[in-house]
Computed example of a mutant assay.
Amino acid sequence: MFDLKTIAAGVASTAVGLAMCAQAAMAETTIRVQSVIPATADEIVMLKDFANDVRELTDGEVNIEVLPAGSVVGVQETLDAVDAGLIEGGFAWTHYWSGKHPAAMLFGSPVAGGGVGMDNIAFMSWFLSAGGKELYEQLWDEMDMNVVGFMLQPVGPEALGWFKEPIESMADFRKYRFRTPPGIPGQTYKDIGVASVAMGGGDILPALEKGTIDAAEWCCPKPDSVFGFQKVLKHYYLQGLHQVVVNADLYLNKDVFNGLTPLQQKAIEVAANASLMKSMAYRIHENGKALDKLVNEDGVILHDTPADYFTEYMNAANKALEKNAEENEFFAKVWQSQKDFAKTAVPFWAGAQTSNANLGRAYADQLKNE
């Protein structure tokens, strides 16, 4: 005969257990993400928007706390700190870690569009639909990093940069000590005789003011103006090849990520994918407004990049890509994947974009005549 008291006690015990499990599942998880750039940067605005999406998608269970550069470890130690669990997450451009593996450049900033004509939108197509994401996941194993990565913020093409005086040719360009990104994009400048100096974003303006460098690139009109380069230099060149495609990424310690529930993990993935589109939209609008202010209020003179730059840089970039492919099997695998994708995707996309470019140019010319 059943003992109703025993059954009731069992039911009550089970209910308490379930409630405790539910409460545990609802426990808040804080993920500290240290950036490699100052808190005022535009990328941090977008990173915080991503963090807000994650918090809302998880009903407040996962909170991403954004820390500025240097809060816990130095900029160059960011990825190692994530790997070791000193911080739960990091935010940077994956080409920053090219010293750990040359293929990092092919994901963070494939020099000259990977040598195969990819812009930032074509790159996203490769990443999301042609095997790039799976190779990106493999990168961390190749680097022996206990890390899970998420691409968040595509941008490109980046501006060639800022100069004291107009440059009419590569001979003029070679007169300057020029801030460049690290890795192959910066090395390619050295290969064509430019005095390339790699440094973090927050160090550029002080270096310009001190004369340590006398020309620089960072990104695009809005981020550049936030850093204040227009206070020191007035000649600006929009067209550059070194970072036609650039991606700012989130890195999470793999143990931390694996400790999340499947739904929480999916929320981060969905928010990351949403961030790709939201970042593109944000950048077009903000860069347009910033360029207008730079030219019409801040006295910046906009120039077209000298024609010989494109030939010299593209040739050197292709040599660098081929050299790294010969020396590293995984680099060759990733680059071959990009080349296979580009054979069919780039001719279509370039042709379609010609209409967009001509349409935009016609409107820009119309504005000049008003």
Rank of each mutant, 00 (worst) to 15 (best):
E168T: 14
G156D: 01
G200H: 07
K100C: 03
S355M: 14
D83I: 06
L135W: 10
Q153N: 11
N120C: 04
D53S: 07
V66H: 04
A8K: 12
A317G: 04
E56L: 15
G85Y: 06
V147F: 10
A320M: 11
A130W: 05
G108S: 06
F50R: 08
F257C: 09
T354G: 02
K293P: 00
V66R: 03
D214W: 05
L139Y: 02
K254F: 08
L233F: 13
H235W: 06
A12E: 03
C220R: 06
W349T: 13
M199E: 05
S71D: 08
E326D: 12
P206Y: 08
F127N: 09
K333N: 14
P68A: 10
F229R: 09
E61H: 13
K266D: 04
M26S: 12
N273Q: 11
L252W: 03
Q243N: 13
S169N: 11
A22S: 12
E329K: 14
G132E: 09
T188Q: 04
L139A: 09
F310K: 00
Y237L: 11
L4K: 12
K289A: 13
W93T: 05
N369E: 11
V197C: 06
L205V: 15
F330E: 05
F50Q: 01
G351H: 11
K100R: 14
R174E: 09
G211T: 02
L294E: 01
F91L: 01
I204D: 01
S35M: 07
T261R: 10
D119L: 04
Q265N: 10
V82L: 06
G132W: 12
V36L: 12
A215H: 01
I192C: 03
S275G: 13
K278N: 07
G131D: 05
V244Y: 06
A8L: 15
Q34S: 05
K164N: 12
T40R: 14
T305L: 04
L291G: 04
A12F: 13
L152Y: 06
D340T: 13
S125F: 07
D144P: 00
N258P: 12
A215P: 03
V147A: 04
I87Q: 00
L135F: 11
G351A: 10
R179W: 08
K234Y: 09
Q153Y: 15
R55Y: 10
D191T: 02
L321F: 05
M105W: 05
L263D: 03
E209K: 15
F310M: 04
G156K: 11
D203C: 07
S98G: 01
Q264M: 14
F341C: 00
G259Q: 03
D340S: 09
D292I: 00
A81H: 06
T30N: 10
A352M: 15
E327C: 03
K266P: 02
V66K: 03
T212R: 14
G108K: 04
L4G: 10
A81Q: 06
M20E: 13
N146F: 02
L241S: 05
N63I: 15
R174K: 08
L86Y: 10
L260C: 08
P154I: 04
M1C: 12
L57H: 15
A267L: 08
M280T: 03
Q230Y: 15
L238S: 07
S169L: 11
I44A: 01
V62K: 08
A130S: 15
V270P: 06
